[in-house]
Design a protein around this nucleic acid. Structure first.
Length: 458
RNA sequence: GGUCGGGUAGCCAAGUGGUUAGGCACCGGUUUGCAAAACCGAUUACACGGGUUCGAUUCCCGUCCCGACCUCCA
């Protein structure tokens, strides 16, 4: 089966064809770096990693761009007062610049831990201020802007196609609007450039033809994607929350300026839903990769967990289901390890596997094929070779997995030896007593044909 | 309030107008001194009420519930 992908713009699955030869340009909306990424954020990057691995497997040469939104406004115009970047600087004592750098590095480290392939280019909004200003100047010359006392705005009603991506009901939006218009002329108008508040010195601000200030959020993506991928490129992705506002506005800017619709495919990763642990970023109380790591779940367990749901479905998170993923993944690792060296690949399995993936990245079904392979009667070396090919997409690093080497204290070692002796003389009472003693010290014993296997008790 | 998307077994989660998704847990069996692990097998579904149809979990309508966005959340 040839690759087919769901396009939010057309709201359907359709065949994927690159715009140029076999090259694919992808722009993925990156994080705003005022805090750690939570596991919900990371699900979206896992989806994009899946997409990229499948494109590569289909023989395409992928040029993958991720942006870093490292400029946010520091003086809030929200009703509640302080904005997130400012809270971040207060919380940590860092400057806005230090804050951005710190959380950018933390984010990149998280991606690496999740075995997410690094993009071709990382681009920061603050490194592309002039490109953004040029973009806005062009929009201004084409008559799509107007100024208010706090910034330069995009006049969304000038663009007939505005809101097509999200199928926005503009009249309905206006009727049900919760947000104050302020000086904006229409509810869907948005800032291209915001002025620094009078009499205040922002940590991040630049001169522009309209006055000192900083770029609106949406313009960075239109400007940077144009720079690295051209005005019209293959795939633009991000989280589902970006459909109605951010991506809608990116499209509006680019259509107004360049006359193209920006990307051929628009793809969106859907949210992770939390049960008890809420993703309340405002309190700083949310689950990060490090937090679940402290609870005994490795990053690749989280990766596996995410692979069990389709990227276009919201997924329910709980420690219970993460535990299920951990058990399944451990079984997969141990079983694959037991197969030894790889032999020849089973092409039938591989074909079924990639057919699932080429059908809009249906990883849950592809994973079912993997488990059928695992439980099949094929020889171990064939299973191993086939599984390793599957792992080029799974990204679980199956080839390098090894049994945990547990450091066993001498005390425990002695008890285990004594127990082995007791078992050899069939003194089961003594043997069980010694096993209890080992358990009390925090270690578990499993009797295998190769001798006692010792592990730490959870 | 407006717009959009969902409700599948104990949990997570695919999919389909009629034929076993898959994983985890649970139960039974094999094996093992016992236990664990492993392997084999079985059970538990399509929110509710109507409609279309030979047949609906799948299509249509309504109801209830959940979520997303409208707040520079992925």
């Amino acid at each position: 089966m040839n690759l087919q992908l769901f396009d939010t713009y057309e709201r359907k699955v359709r065949p994927f064809e690159p715009l140029v030869d076999n090259k694919v340009g992808i722009y993925a909306c990156g994080p705003t770096v005022y805090n750690f990424a939570h596991i919900g954020n990371l699900r979206t990057y896992l989806f994009e990693d899946l997409l990229i691995r499948v494109l590569v497997a289909n023989g395409y040469e992928v040029n993958h761009i991720i942006n870093i939104t490292d400029v946010g406004h520091l003086t809030s115009d929200a009703d509640t007062g302080e904005d997130k970047m400012e809270l971040g600087t207060k919380r940590t004592g860092m400057t806005a610049w230090e804050l951005a750098e710190f959380y950018t590095e933390a984010f990149q480290a998280d991606l690496a831990k999740l075995n997410i392939l690094a993009p071709s280019v990382w681009c920061k909004a603050t490194d592309h201020i002039s490109e953004q200003i040029e973009f806005v100047v062009d929009l201004e010359q084409k008559g799509y802007t107007y100024a208010t006392s706090d910034g330069l705005y995009f006049d969304s009603r000038k663009l007939k196609s505005y809101g097509h991506l999200a199928r926005l009901d503009v009249e309905g939006l206006q009727a049900g609007a919760r947000v104050k218009l302020g000086e904006r002329r229409f509810v869907t108008d948005f800032a291209l450039w915001k002025f620094s508040p009078p009499g205040e010195q922002r940590q991040m601000e630049w001169d522009s033809p309209w006055g000192r200030g900083f770029p609106g959020w949406h313009i960075e993506c239109s400007a940077m994607s144009a720079k690295y991928l051209g005005d019209y490129f293959d795939i633009h992705c991000g989280g589902e929350d970006h459909i109605p506002i951010h991506h809608t506005n990116e499209i509006a800017q680019t259509e107004a300026s360049k006359g193209t619709r920006l990307a051929n495919f628009w793809m969106h990763g859907y949210f992770l839903q939390m049960d008890k642990a809420k993703m309340s970023k405002s309190t700083g109380d949310f689950l990060t990769l490090d937090v679940i790591g402290e609870r005994g779940f490795s990053p690749l367990v989280y990766r596996y967990f995410c692979l069990t749901a389709h990227y276009r479905s919201q997924m329910s998170f709980s420690l219970e289901s993460l535990e299920a993923a951990k058990t399944a993944l451990t079984r997969l690792y141990e079983t694959a390890f037991s197969w030894g060296e790889p032999g020849t690949v089973d092409e039938g399995t591989l074909t079924r596997y990639f057919d699932c993936l080429n059908d809009d990245l249906n990883m849950p079904r592809a994973l079912a094929v993997v488990w059928e392979l695992v439980r099949s009667n094929l020889p171990g070396d064939v299973k191993k070779a086939t599984l390793l090919r599957c792992d080029e997409i799974l990204g679980l690093d199956i080839a390098n997995w090894e049994m945990d080497q547990v450091d066993v204290p001498d005390e425990v070692e002695e008890l285990v030896k004594a127990r082995e002796a007791a078992r050899a003389s069939k003194d089961w009472a003594q043997s069980d007593e010694l096993r209890d003693a080992v358990n009390k010290l925090g270690y578990a014993i499993e009797d295998t044909p190769g001798g006692a296997k010792i592990s730490t008790l959870d």
